[in-house]
């Protein structure tokens, strides 16, 4: 998976931030370590970043740093789930996840009054997968089951949720990232969801 890279120089030029700011944000963990990609160029060592991700992140930081302190921002961007729990009523009212995903989650679980962050995250990821139009409701169930059983084991390290389908039979797996996955011919990776991205999105929605 070759992604578009941007050099540090170009990044500073494009966004108008200074070295001081960039290093400060790195120090506060607003920019994850793995985005700093070192490469040798003819002008010596240079640092590159995944272009889309870093531009989006810097845009977010610039927008929010008026209202939040750097430490608060760091919490928001960290892959660690927040402590909060959200009431069922709020989830519905604020339209955080779709009704379909919510119903699927509630199936067999009875009435849920409150969602701890992690559970809401599962529903949120399920929703994203369903919205992509790639998976069926039944596949949604195994996705949810995988998350519930195994997500905690990653202890907030970066991981990806994958659904692979061959001849109409789907298998769901949770793998740590960064890595490469190759599947046999005839099988297809249907969805591949980067969990930290969703943790972050959900935090933004709840904030």
């Amino acid at each position: 998976m070759e992604q578009d890279l941007i050099s540090k120089k170009e990044l500073l030029e494009l966004t108008g931030i200074s070295y001081g700011q960039l290093y400060r944000w790195k120090r506060k963990n607003l920019i994850p370590e793995e985005w700093f990609i070192r490469k040798s160029t003819f002008t010596g060592q240079e640092t590159f970043f995944p272009k889309e991700k870093i531009l989006a992140r810097i845009h977010q930081i610039k927008n929010m740093k008026e209202d939040l302190s750097l430490d608060e921002l760091a919490d928001m961007f960290s892959p660690n789930p927040s402590e909060i729990a959200v009431r069922y009523k709020d989830v519905v009212e604020r339209n955080i996840v779709s009704k379909i995903a919510l119903d699927l989650y509630q199936e067999g679980r009875g009435d849920i009054k409150e969602f701890p962050f992690e559970n809401l995250l599962y529903v949120y990821v399920l929703d994203a997968a369903l919205q992509s139009g790639e998976i069926s409701l039944d596949e949604g169930k195994i996705l949810l089951q995988t998350l519930e059983e195994h997500y905690a084991k990653f202890q907030h390290r970066n991981c990806e949720l994958m659904l692979i389908r061959k001849l109409g039979i789907a298998t769901c797996l949770l793998v740590s990232t960064p890595n490469e996955v190759h599947v046999e011919r005839g099988a297809r990776v249907v969805v591949r969801l980067h969990m930290p991205t969703y943790v972050e999105q959900l935090k933004m929605k709840l904030a």
Partner: peptide, 22 residues
């Protein structure tokens, strides 16, 4: 040092591959 990057950089008696700054 290999690389030194900063907004204001003042160096004496330094051996470096790359220095970048404003």
């Amino acid at each position: 040092a290999e690389t030194i990057e900063g907004d204001d950089v003042h160096l004496e008696f330094t051996k470096a591959d790359v220095v970048r700054g404003n």
